[in-house]
């Protein structure tokens, strides 16, 4: 058994999987500004080494707005420090993360009140008058 002569430790949690995503976000912002087109990046479909997802989250930071949704488990919808770049995290009823996305958009669709819910809510309000 030989003793290792040269010991190399990783210098950062980087395996090189974060920068391509930042680049994709940059292009998505150009698309949003140019043609008003939104982009969603499904973070579950990308390879991350230990610590890389947390690193990406820390790099994007926190912006001015964050919201919590309570539907089929909680979800957090939060603008990152880069306006137009949103970090969405969906949890199930057991509080396990079931989806993680970056949305490059003005307002994530899930924040808007939905017609079906408005109709149901309106009917409910009307019932209050009976």
């Amino acid at each position: 058994m030989t003793t290792p002569q040269e010991v190399q430790r990783p210098t950062s949690p980087f395996h090189g999987n974060v920068r391509p995503i930042l680049n994709e976000v940059l292009h998505a912002l150009d698309k949003l500004l140019g043609t008003n087109e939104s982009t969603t990046i499904d973070l579950a479909s990308l390879p991350f080494g230990p610590g890389e997802l947390e690193h990406l989250e820390a790099l994007l930071g926190k912006g001015e707005l964050s919201a919590e949704l309570d539907a089929l488990g909680t979800s957090s919808i939060r603008e990152t420090a880069y306006p137009g770049v949103w970090w969405l995290e969906h949890r199930n009823a057991f509080d396990e993360v079931v989806g993680r996305y970056l949305e490059i958009t003005r307002t994530p669709e899930i924040l808007s009140s939905q017609d079906a819910d408005i109709v149901a809510g309106r009917a409910h309000l009307e019932d209050q008058f009976e």
Binding site: D42, A44, S45, L69, A71, L72, S75, H90, V98, G99, Y101, E109, I110, Q114, D115, A116, D117
Partner: peptide, 15 residues
């Protein structure tokens, strides 16, 4: 389940 909940369900299904 609200429409929002349904949209969430669909997003995770796509994933």
């Amino acid at each position: 389940v609200s429409r929002r909940g349904f949209l969430k369900y669909c997003a995770t299904t796509a994933s």
